[in-house]
Simulated assay, not measured.
Amino acid sequence: MLISADLVWSRGALRPGLAVETRAGRVAALRPLGADTPDLHLPLLMPGLTDLQVNGGGGVLFNAEPSVAGITAIAAAHRRLGTARILPTVITDTPEVIEAAAAAVIAARAEGLAQIDGIHIEGPHIAPERRGTHDARFIRPLDTRTLAVLARLRAADVPVLLTLAPECCDPALLAQAVGLGVVVSAGHSRADAGQTRAALAAGVGMFTHLYNAMPQMQSRDPGIIAAALLSDAWCGLIADGIHVAPEMLALAMAARPRRDRCFLVSDAMPTVGGPDRFRLYGMDIAVRDGALVNPEGALAGAHVSLLDCVQRLVALTGTAPGRAIAMAGDLPRRAMRLPPLRIARGMAVADLIALDADLRLLPDPVP
């Protein structure tokens, strides 16, 4: 089958005049269309997106179902919405839940579940004052038990993203995590600018959902956000139009010394591709006016897919579509030291998505 498109994502940009040959569910070639007549023509063809922060989907919360079956259901829900690869995200919980989540990811990858690119452990080593919806009962300093989990994951060649508050961690234990090859991200943190710069020097290379669950910038107290923006580290952003105002998204992107150091995450919860409510820490979490809130009205994750975030970033900030697509595909993969998803010989057709001119998902190009 020969598929052409007005624009194809290739080598980090949207390019015209290309066509994809497919055979037996795989890409056989990416080449110029030339004078050939395609079997199918699309507005936009690209690899599926990569989401580094997926708490749940399809009615399943990873913390509640830390199993291969749970991961499979979450990944399938996001695949239907345009996300080809995810890091299932386990948030602050008991050591047993985090260990079960790690074991599930190891098993899923061993079974060949291609959508799982690793694991994101968000907490429990965070600042209680900046915990957000995370349960204070389970917050604790970085310890040898977590380091054992990280070592087990890395021994199984699982990419790991660990979100913690660096000011709350023993520097020696933090160094051990970095030494294992874990991508350490600062988040749910009350660090000041000096503490943040020290964490960056110690190997912290990312910031989790910038602006959220951290003190805001002040003229005489720049804090973690200003230190993050002025660094070369990676910054994740939730572009749902609820967690961060459009102006602040645009400011973060414009302020970076390196243009390519911001990426998008969904922070998706089970309502994405599922029912409009779920249980977290014994609380009812429900969708209200597009936002996920707990009984006190505080935000509890997001009710968006990553493709929703791409569309909203473009619509709310005027970001060029190519840049927004990169922030949900090539850049998060680079941030996690993962190889890019490229349309090339051997790629599974299931990893391709087709979009219309407004970046809305179309049916799979090859059923």
Rank of each mutant, 00 (worst) to 15 (best):
P66G: 01
D36N: 06
A73Y: 04
M46G: 02
G70P: 02
A28C: 03
L40R: 15
G25H: 05
L49K: 01
L45H: 10
D51Y: 11
R80M: 11
A28F: 12
G25M: 12
G70Y: 08
H78N: 04
R79D: 02
G70M: 09
R31Y: 08
R79K: 14
N63G: 02
V54F: 09
G25I: 14
P47K: 00
Q53R: 12
P38T: 15
N63M: 08
F62G: 07
S67E: 04
R79H: 12
S67I: 15
I74K: 00
A76W: 06
P32Y: 02
T50N: 07
T37R: 05
V54I: 13
S67F: 12
N55K: 09
L45F: 15
E65Y: 02
L61D: 04
V27F: 08
G59N: 05
P32S: 04
A76H: 13
G59T: 13
L44Q: 14
P43H: 13
G56S: 01
L44E: 05
L45S: 12
G48T: 06
P43N: 09
E65S: 14
D51M: 06
G58I: 06
T37D: 08
T50V: 14
I71E: 00
S67C: 12
Q53Y: 05
L30C: 07
P32M: 03
P38R: 03
G59H: 07
A76E: 14
Q53E: 05
A76Q: 13
G58F: 02
G56L: 01
G59K: 08
R80H: 11
T50S: 13
D51P: 03
A64H: 13
A28W: 06
P38S: 06
D39T: 09
I71C: 01
L40Y: 06
H41A: 12
